[in-house]
Design a protein around this nucleic acid. Structure first.
Lengths: 338, 338
DNA sequence: CTGAAAGCGCTAACAA
DNA sequence: TTGTTAGCGCTTTCAG
């Protein structure tokens, strides 16, 4: 009774056996009301704090799930993580989180660490994975769900945005508005399949209307404001100016609006701009961004629910595609010549 | 040997005792090289994954720390969390994270959960706390460090930005530029002491130069783009227009720039705007924001280091004040009349 | 340098 | 309904 009180102490003080005390807390129904009340009473008197580590060791369940994100700092993932947290919270589960910094080998290592820590399931938002990861997951038989990185070769459930559909819809809007002189601004296409998917969707959609952006109208650049703005400026100051800028992310779109205006172009009268994701920034722009909303919070919530379902022994659907929604605001208009 | 291999299996295959196997991994120096090599060999053959839960139970150390944030979604905290992660990563520690949603009672509950999970230390970014929290922390004797919420009554180390100094410096710059007609835009002052501190610093600095903003030039509003813009618009369209807008956050400043421009005012020629924090958004504005940089990543890093130091038995300094840096960009100029 | 044995705090048969 | 007992997988004295 020197250190922290354990269940053993509770039992002694309440004059019951260790197992009765254990049951009183875990399966209250199996203990007589009076005894249970007494035990609960003693718990607060002694300020008993259950030791989950010990519990975990006997039941081989940690009530904790591990989440791997490509980067904690990316604001896009914040709502997704928060979605996970929300559903975990309701179940009193803990969340171990780690950032793989976009490095598949780091992800692999982190999964191993999660395994050591005994997480019950793993969620990953990494866009690409190392081959060994799948082997490890299969070997350890731990439930895992993949967010935004489909794997046709494996059986793990995955949930993703309809990136293709979203971008196609957005591009179609631009076409429908009458634009034909269209430039595309995307993030580094090689970095993640998602950006590649969005770019492809845009391109295919334009092609469907006979529009084929020239190479210098297909820009890849980083998301930081400075390089993004520089890229837009370069595009807008070197020769022919498109009537519309289709961006694969709101960051780029915002940079485009700002930079276009700085060059004296009016948005959308002189040039239209569209984004993707619908982050808060889209509302800060003037005009506000016409964009496609992609539900990031739901991404996390859904993935987490799938994982919990697996923990209960069910086999959830393998693929979950989250819907998009085109949000029409002010940054898309008709081209001047139309 | 049916389920996952344990250290016991490793030992058997390597033909050594359980304790030798344990030592080989934990204190390699105490085991003869040949034996150690054999054991390590077997570990990979068997794909042995150490069980930290078991280890934790015997050594009463989890190599995990718990972090509580007011909100995961707030992009300001992301770098701080990432800072924590970075230093934890280097030590192979895990991070349990939770959001208290700005509710001190939730924080209390989450600390309790962390305690159950056996975290070695706790970091909290919550701005305010419930009284019981301190009692619980003291009772459980767990190392805890407070981020951005100083508590003179307790002995826990805390690290914070020099919010007062930062805002005073920024306000002084505005005064020095010649402004006297100054409005202040802040977040809900009651929500967190930090905002209150910044506002107070600004106010006191202005007062030092005999400037006393009228009540309708002291605006409190939410951080979301829409309410922020609305608030700025109201300010700018109702009577006298200030020559400078001092904002306690870049979000507000960005909204101010946008909205001022939408009303036909030039920044900084007609109206100057200053921010605080120096988030990426500051670079997206045109002109870019003159602001004060507050190191969020370091906030997390430092706090985490302090916690680790405590874990090693040291007693780190109680207060750590992080430096600010005024960043002069384009949104602050001289007033037109000056 | 290596092995045997005693737990860490809790759960879960199995008995009573 | 309650108690007894045997672990969960690992670390760690204490001997050898």
């Amino acid at each position: 009774m020197s250190g922290k009180p354990g269940l053993r102490d509770v039992a002694r003080v309440a004059k019951v056996s260790l197992s009765t005390a254990s049951r009183a807390l875990a399966q209250p129904g199996l203990v007589s009301p009076e005894v249970r009340a007494r035990i609960e009473q003693v718990c607060v008197e002694l300020r008993y704090i259950p030791n989950r580590t010990a519990k975990r060791l006997s039941v081989d369940r940690s009530d904790t799930i591990g989440v791997i994100v490509p980067s904690i700092a990316n604001p896009l993932f914040a709502p997704a993580i928060d979605g996970v947290r929300t559903v975990l919270d309701a179940r009193n589960f803990g969340m171990l989180i780690n950032s793989a910094e976009l490095d598949p080998l780091r992800e692999l290592k982190q999964v191993r660490t999660f395994l050591e820590h005994g997480v019950d399931a793993i969620l990953t938002l990494m866009p690409v994975h190392d081959e060994q990861l799948f082997e490890l997951l299969e070997y350890s038989k731990i439930p895992a769900v993949f967010i935004n990185s489909a794997r046709s070769e494996t059986t793990h459930p995955f949930v993703e945005h309809d990136n293709f559909g979203a971008m196609r819809a957005m591009a179609q809007k631009v076409i429908d508005a009458g634009h034909r002189e269209i430039a595309i601004i995307s993030g580094p296409r090689s970095s993640t399949p998602i950006i590649f998917e969005r770019t492809t969707a845009a391109l295919e959609t334009l092609a469907g209307s006979g529009v084929q952006p020239s190479l210098d109208w297909m820009i890849e650049c980083d998301y930081d404001p400075v390089p993004a703005r520089a890229a837009v400026r370069a595009l807008l100051t070197s020769g022919r100016v498109p009537t519309a800028l289709v961006c694969t992310g709101d960051q780029h779109a915002a940079a485009a609006v700002i930079e276009a205006q700085a060059l004296g172009l009016r948005v959308p009268e002189d040039i239209s701009v569209t984004g993707c994701n619908d982050v808060p920034l889209a509302l800060l722009c003037e005009p506000q961004l016409t964009t496609v909303r992609l539900p990031y919070r739901e991404l996390g919530e859904t993935a987490c629910r799938l994982a919990l379902e697996m923990l209960e022994g069910n086999t959830p659907q393998r693929r979950t595609l989250l819907p998009y929604e085109v949000i029409e605001r002010g940054s898309l208009g008709r081209p001047r010549t139309a």
